[in-house]
Amino acid sequence: MLTYLKVFLVGGALCALGEVLILKTKLTPARILVVYITAGAALSALGLYGPLARFAFAGATVPLTGFGHALAQGAISAVQETGLLGAFTGGLAATAGGIAAAVFFGFLAALLFRPRPKDF
């Protein structure tokens, strides 16, 4: 139960911080995503995001900072295994599932649905 509370609080806090950034800095949501993923990769490389992910589980991995964390950790462990080549293969390999899913389901949605005229 405590785990769920931690997931909810950390995940919610990361989102609330994003809302503050959107409203206070006039950053567009697309820029917020870029900031989050880059910040996640940087914090991960500095060894700061790993502990957060172990503390809050999905609360830290589901937000886009977690995506950056997965990219950075993927690159690091691939470098450990295959050397410099791993810097190029590790990040994408670790996050391939989410990216491929977004591409595939995006295409599928385009196949099945059309933007709905609503509210206007």
Binding site: G11, G18, I32, L64, A102
Partner: peptide
């Protein structure tokens, strides 16, 4: 929800799916 849906991976997915549909 604003950033509540943007920041999780749902925001990333929506950012891919919505233009895929829009520009059909």
């Amino acid at each position: 929800a604003g950033a509540g849906t943007v920041v999780p991976i749902t925001g990333f997915a929506n950012a891919m799916v919505s233009p895929a549909m829009e520009f059909k």
